[in-house]
Amino acid sequence: MKRVLALALGLLVLVGVGVGYSTFAADRNDDSAVERRALDLTAGGRLVFVDTSRAGGHRTVAATGLGEPPGSARTDSGLRCERFAVGAGTGVCLQTRGGPLPGTDALIVDRTTNVRRRVELAGTPSRARVSASGRMVSWTVFVTGDSYNKTGFSTWTGILDTRTDYTLLNIEAIPLTVDGKRYRSPDVNYWGVSFAADDNRFYATVGTKGHTYLVEGDYAKWEAHTIRDGVECPSLSPDGTRIAFKKRSGNGTWRLHVLDLATLHETPLAERANVDDQAAWLDDATVMYGRGHDVYATPADGGGTPRLLATKAASPTALR
């Protein structure tokens, strides 16, 4: 009997060693092009993103040089995030939280990705943005549902002022004007905030009764009004004149467009694949976005062709 037990224990040890070695080998292979060290979120000439290259869904903030080939070696900060954005050395990391009541933590980090503040949220990570000055931070989480393509989903979108630490966990109560009239409805959902350079104006999507409106908000006056229907996940250009957004197609997919805020003229971009992402701006002339498991870039004027920017990456921010 003892001999049988000893044999069984030996087999378990061997299995454990084999599994451990396989896991180690897989991690080692996944990390072969990754250098772990602190990131400086104020250093220019870098592309910062969420690295999705490792097995098991383990995602961390990483960076490569702007202009480097898509598969170049990347520097890994070790900060675990599902979504990430940065402005002027202030970052926001949306990190899933386990336990009996799973949720999301919004981590506010400094220029070396050290956590300075943690905001506990319900739901699962969706969108994250930081203003160019680093003062204003926003996030969106799904509190029911897990896709903008599903009916019945609900989102919470928050805004945090890092100068005053004033935090709004959900901006749905902001007075909203639709087509010039004060609007109230229990199904209002906001998502995808993008801040203007003055840290006061912001743009977002508000969904209600089957519409997805682009809204412009005034943080100081605490009011918002609709600009155009059919706009989702807006991203304001660095010069403040255009909005990159995803527009729903008839087949249930989205195509990227750019909206001129002065004329409200829409330009479809050369990327024809389905893009379910809040685009970002590589520069004033180029939009970047997650497509599948990679990050691509395409001209903002509708010309040219999409190009691969970073493999196995998401949530890009260009540091210039």
Results as ranks from 00 to 15, higher is better:
residue 77 S to E: 04
residue 255 R to C: 00
residue 150 K to Q: 15
residue 128 A to Q: 06
residue 169 L to A: 11
residue 202 F to C: 02
residue 206 V to I: 11
residue 110 D to W: 04
residue 246 K to P: 05
residue 19 V to Q: 08
residue 172 E to T: 12
residue 305 T to R: 15
residue 231 V to W: 06
residue 33 A to Y: 08
residue 251 N to Q: 13
residue 207 G to A: 13
residue 29 N to Q: 13
residue 242 R to Y: 02
residue 301 D to A: 07
residue 286 T to A: 02
residue 219 Y to S: 02
residue 74 R to P: 08
residue 291 R to V: 01
residue 16 G to R: 05
residue 62 A to R: 04
residue 23 T to C: 10
residue 153 F to Y: 15
residue 231 V to I: 13
residue 198 D to N: 14
residue 116 R to I: 01
residue 30 D to I: 03
residue 181 K to E: 15
residue 284 D to I: 00
residue 193 V to T: 09
residue 269 L to E: 03
residue 220 A to E: 13
residue 21 Y to P: 04
residue 13 V to H: 01
residue 244 A to D: 07
residue 210 G to N: 09
residue 43 A to R: 13
residue 228 R to N: 02
residue 263 T to W: 14
residue 106 A to P: 12
residue 59 R to S: 13
residue 200 N to D: 11
residue 199 D to F: 09
residue 311 T to G: 09
residue 7 L to F: 09
residue 61 V to T: 03
residue 86 V to Y: 00
residue 217 G to E: 05
residue 142 F to R: 04
residue 210 G to I: 09
residue 45 G to C: 04
residue 184 R to Q: 13
residue 314 A to D: 14
residue 190 Y to E: 03
residue 36 R to T: 13
residue 235 S to K: 02
residue 64 T to A: 11
residue 99 G to P: 13
residue 70 P to K: 05
residue 30 D to E: 05
residue 21 Y to Q: 11
residue 309 L to M: 09
residue 48 V to Y: 02
residue 105 D to P: 09
residue 124 T to M: 11
residue 119 V to W: 01
residue 262 A to I: 08
residue 263 T to N: 15
residue 243 I to Q: 03
residue 301 D to Q: 03
residue 9 L to K: 03
residue 289 Y to W: 07
residue 49 F to L: 02
residue 51 D to W: 08
residue 182 R to W: 01
residue 57 G to W: 07
